[in-house]
């Protein structure tokens, strides 16, 4: 029998209240979370078919192009695998991602940063992992971005990720950072995560072996979702 999902390690994840990230102050519950084993309501979750995807969904260089012109910026491929905590691949996982353009500007009506929009860059994409849990997309490297927290706070270059595993209990939103960026270690949002190793797990590695010569650099970003309990003694012979 397969069973409930592993308890989340909430010493590893950021806590709700992280005052140097100011918005968290009024948006953090004060009461303890109610802890329970997962039930069928959390051990199931929506699964999406390839019919939701369009042909350019994983190509942010072209998917918002107005006239066939490609987005401006450093061309990169981001690839990786979605795994669970037992190191098993998570196939069929919908991965959504969004980001600013090469100048750090988001295409969003509430956003007013003076850096220019790129008329050929929307900033959203998505893909579904293959049978080995692999995903890949093409984009431009996002720029750093100033935000009103401290008077001079800047986000490091980052790409937001939203991942659907196989269960609502695995639902996760996180951010990917880039190897070597000194701003990672200055960011109040990054530093909501208490453990340096947990931060390092969100830093994508430059992978020269996966670059496309004369075209794009490549970054590898693996994502780990919660694992599911299944002790050897409880296992059925045919597996779970």
């Amino acid at each position: 029998m397969s069973g409930s999902y592993f308890q989340r390690d909430r010493q590893w994840h950021p806590p709700a209240l992280t005052p140097s990230y100011k918005t968290s102050i009024l948006r953090a519950p004060k009461n303890a979370l109610l802890s329970l084993p997962t039930t069928a309501s959390e051990e199931t979750g929506p699964v999406f078919g390839h019919d939701v995807l369009g042909p350019l969904d994983a190509d942010l260089i072209r998917n918002f192009s107005q006239d066939g012109t490609e987005a401006i910026g450093q061309r990169i491929v981001v690839y990786g695998r979605v795994l669970d905590e037992a190191a098993r691949p998570v196939p069929g996982a919908l991965v959504e991602f969004w980001q600013a353009n090469a100048g750090g500007r988001y295409r969003h009506k509430k956003e007013s940063y003076l850096a220019a929009l790129d008329p050929n860059f929307g900033g959203c994409g998505r893909c579904i992992t293959d049978e080995d849990g692999r995903y890949a997309f093409r984009t431009v490297k996002p720029g750093a971005y100033p935000w009103p927290n401290g008077v001079n706070d800047w986000r490091p270059a980052h790409i937001h990720f939203s991942i659907f595993g196989h269960a609502f209990a695995q639902r996760l939103i996180t951010q990917m950072y880039f190897e070597g960026d000194p701003m990672i270690w200055q960011c109040p949002i990054v530093k909501t995560i208490p453990d340096r190793a947990a931060i390092e797990q969100l830093v994508a590695a430059l992978d020269r072996n996966a670059t496309i010569p004369m075209d794009s650099l490549a970054y590898k970003f693996d994502i780990v979702l919660r694992g599911r309990r299944s002790t050897p003694f409880e296992n059925r012979m045919e597996g779970n």
Binding site: A86, W98, H160, T174
Partner: peptide
């Protein structure tokens, strides 16, 4: 032989770009 779950981060104010 367990991996650690990727740490969560805020969805931010522009989550709707992606969703």
């Amino acid at each position: 032989d367990y991996l650690k779950e990727s740490a969560s981060q805020t969805a931010g104010p522009y989550v709707h770009i992606g969703t």
